[in-house]
Design a protein around this nucleic acid. Structure first.
Lengths: 220, 220
DNA sequence: TAGATTGTTAATCGATTAACAATC
DNA sequence: TAGATTGTTAATCGATTAACAATC
């Protein structure tokens, strides 16, 4: 069965990296095959959903047998586009930008930080574990010349859109936005957002919600 | 209309911080009232969804008028539990832990980092912009004694569950997990996860998807 | 009062789950 | 072959959107 052509819902895409993580664990343990039922017990999605999700891309399983762990791992990696390298730049070399530059986890997976950019003279010229911090003035030229794929936005809220515009103009294919604001990009550029504040606020809600329920049950 | 009691779906909760951000912007601009239709044009949700979302918690609007920006901001802040302070500790003072410790954005919103913990002797005793790095051995006692609300997990994958267990044992009400793995917590503890790798993989997928569509259209 | 806009019910849409025929 | 498990269609569930009566 060949891969389907219909639009895949974002809910499905968001689950793929998680499937892949569990497959890595299974590979480490030497597990060679897994049924959707066994996978369900492990990962917490229903067996039906697992089969449904995978069949969006092709028939990777074998009736009466299950799925090859190694095979499925490679299929999902390919679907996500993890079988190649990506060149990234970080814009804004503050605390968060520096942390991401130094985080080796991404590097190992083929996401390479080529340079960081900042406006602050005291930062320009210094390096972060081998990654140079350059003057933001040269960013567009650098991105063009080095065919950078992804721009990581770690500047503050007020400059995020401007930086995004420049990155898109310079030709990045994707933007990873950490600034606590919403930005707009042309439709040919992919956008992924990490809103840390929003995440923390959501946590606060759930903490208070649990608290409230506890008090209510105590009263009943 | 009093606040409803039914279970609010997570999709609604995830939108609340975003409503709040736009309300802050409106306040800054001196806007005093907004209709669901105007809000829709701004934030990109349908007017119907906005009214539906807000009415999960109460009737905050006024027929024929709209919503008070200031009033709605306070209501949503209260719903999220942002009208109080939270005490947090960071476990794992590596790059990411340090970045979060130094990130003043959270501090301003009432989320205070009280201390960071690590196992590495070279880090213990040093400080991050006024936040001490302490020996992980003393973590449980510290969390209990200081009534810490939130534990932020920035250790590596292999130690994440163990750290979570300790934090829960010590009595935190919420856990914010940055380790690239899934962890389990008791039902009386809230859990919010930030999977940076998953987010990056999702970005890679969308980049490749856009690329593929472009090639396909070129062929047609 | 007339116009505007909410709060809420009903309709639609999409995503998840269940069922089962196909097949290894 | 018999048993197991997929791939896929059908049923259900939940979330979003549309419609409109209530009311400021």
């Amino acid at each position: 069965m060949a891969a389907k052509n219909a639009k895949i819902s974002n809910a499905v895409i968001k689950r793929l990296p998680r499937y892949r993580r569990y497959l890595i664990e299974l590979k480490k343990k030497g597990v060679e095959k897994i049924s959707s039922k066994e996978f369900s017990a492990l990962i917490g999605y229903t067996a039906s959903q697992i089969r449904q999700d995978l069949n969006n891309f092709g028939g990777f399983g074998q009736q009466g047998y299950g799925y090859s762990v190694e095979g499925l791992y490679h299929e999902i990696s390919a679907i996500l586009g993890l079988d190649r390298e990506y060149r990234m730049v970080i814009v804004g070399a503050g605390n968060l930008g520096q942390a991401i530059a130094k985080y080796t986890h991404f590097h190992k997976q083929g996401f390479k930080v080529w340079a960081a950019f900042d406006i602050k003279p005291s930062l320009i010229g210094t390096d972060l574990d081998g990654i140079e911090i350059l003057d933001h003035e040269g960013m567009v030229e650098y991105v063009e010349k080095n065919a950078i794929d992804i721009g990581i936005i770690c500047v503050n809220q007020d400059n995020a859109q401007e930086v995004a515009d420049k990155l898109c103009f310079a030709g990045v294919k994707g933007i990873w936005n950490f600034a606590p604001t919403d930005i707009e990009v042309p439709s040919h550029v992919a956008l992924e957002v990490v809103h840390l504040s929003d995440s923390l606020h959501s946590l606060a809600y759930h903490m208070n919600d649990i608290q409230k329920k506890g008090e209510k049950n105590a009263k009943d």
